[in-house]
Simulated assay, not measured.
Amino acid sequence: MSGCTLTKVSITGFESCGFFKRAVDVSNKIAKAQSSVNVEVRGFVSREEYKAWLAQERNAISTKYGSAAASHTSSPFAVADDVFLGGCDALLAKLGTAFPDIDLTPPKVVVPQAPGFLAHTAGFAVDTLKVSMVVSVVSVVGRIGPLKRFLLKQMESKMHEAKVVSSYDEGKLMENVFNKPCTFGAFIWSFMRTARLSAQVAMGGLAPNVKLLDTVSGGEKLLYDYQHGSRLLVLNFGSQS
Score class of each variant (00 low, 15 high):
residue 225 D to V: 04
residue 132 S to L: 08
residue 181 P to L: 12
residue 106 P to D: 07
residue 151 L to A: 01
residue 169 D to P: 04
residue 134 V to H: 01
residue 240 Q to M: 02
residue 127 D to C: 07
residue 116 G to A: 10
residue 176 N to Q: 14
residue 152 L to N: 06
residue 184 F to Q: 07
residue 171 G to Y: 10
residue 137 V to D: 05
residue 216 V to E: 14
residue 203 M to Y: 09
residue 122 A to D: 09
residue 229 G to F: 04
residue 181 P to Q: 09
residue 228 H to W: 00
residue 171 G to W: 06
residue 158 K to I: 06
residue 189 W to P: 00
residue 135 V to I: 12
residue 130 K to V: 15
residue 135 V to S: 02
residue 128 T to D: 12
residue 174 M to W: 14
residue 185 G to F: 09
residue 164 V to D: 05
residue 176 N to M: 10
residue 110 V to I: 14
residue 145 G to T: 10
residue 175 E to V: 04
residue 136 S to V: 00
residue 196 R to M: 04
residue 119 A to P: 00
residue 150 F to I: 00
residue 229 G to I: 02
residue 192 M to D: 10
residue 156 E to Q: 13
residue 148 K to F: 00
residue 119 A to C: 03
residue 170 E to R: 12
residue 175 E to D: 15
residue 140 V to A: 10
residue 119 A to L: 07
residue 158 K to Q: 12
residue 216 V to D: 10
residue 181 P to E: 11
residue 107 P to C: 02
residue 233 L to M: 14
residue 212 L to M: 10
residue 206 L to I: 04
residue 146 P to C: 02
residue 127 D to Q: 12
residue 104 L to Q: 03
residue 201 V to P: 01
residue 184 F to D: 05
residue 185 G to M: 05
residue 114 A to D: 12
residue 175 E to W: 02
residue 213 L to V: 13
residue 116 G to S: 11
residue 111 V to D: 12
residue 188 I to G: 07
residue 238 G to W: 09
residue 235 L to P: 05
residue 158 K to C: 06
residue 194 T to L: 12
residue 205 G to A: 15
residue 198 S to N: 14
residue 220 E to C: 07
residue 100 P to H: 07
residue 148 K to D: 01
residue 231 R to P: 00
residue 152 L to T: 01
residue 219 G to E: 15
residue 167 S to I: 10
residue 155 M to E: 01
residue 140 V to F: 04
residue 194 T to E: 14
residue 182 C to W: 07
residue 224 Y to C: 09
residue 107 P to V: 08
residue 101 D to A: 10
residue 151 L to R: 00
residue 210 V to G: 03
residue 189 W to T: 15
residue 165 V to Q: 14
residue 153 K to M: 00
residue 193 R to C: 08
residue 232 L to D: 13
residue 205 G to R: 05
residue 173 L to W: 01
residue 131 V to W: 04
residue 119 A to F: 01
residue 142 G to A: 03
residue 240 Q to D: 13
residue 135 V to D: 04
residue 100 P to E: 11
residue 212 L to T: 03
residue 178 F to K: 07
residue 227 Q to N: 03
residue 104 L to F: 13
residue 132 S to G: 08
residue 203 M to S: 08
residue 153 K to W: 01
residue 106 P to A: 06
residue 212 L to K: 05
residue 225 D to H: 15
residue 226 Y to S: 08
residue 138 V to H: 02
residue 138 V to S: 00
residue 153 K to G: 13
residue 230 S to C: 12
residue 183 T to L: 13
residue 173 L to R: 09
residue 174 M to V: 11
residue 112 P to S: 06
residue 145 G to N: 12
residue 105 T to I: 04
residue 178 F to I: 11
residue 110 V to R: 07
residue 154 Q to C: 03
residue 170 E to S: 11
residue 202 A to G: 01
residue 237 F to E: 08
residue 112 P to A: 06
residue 184 F to E: 05
residue 199 A to K: 13
residue 155 M to T: 09
residue 203 M to F: 03
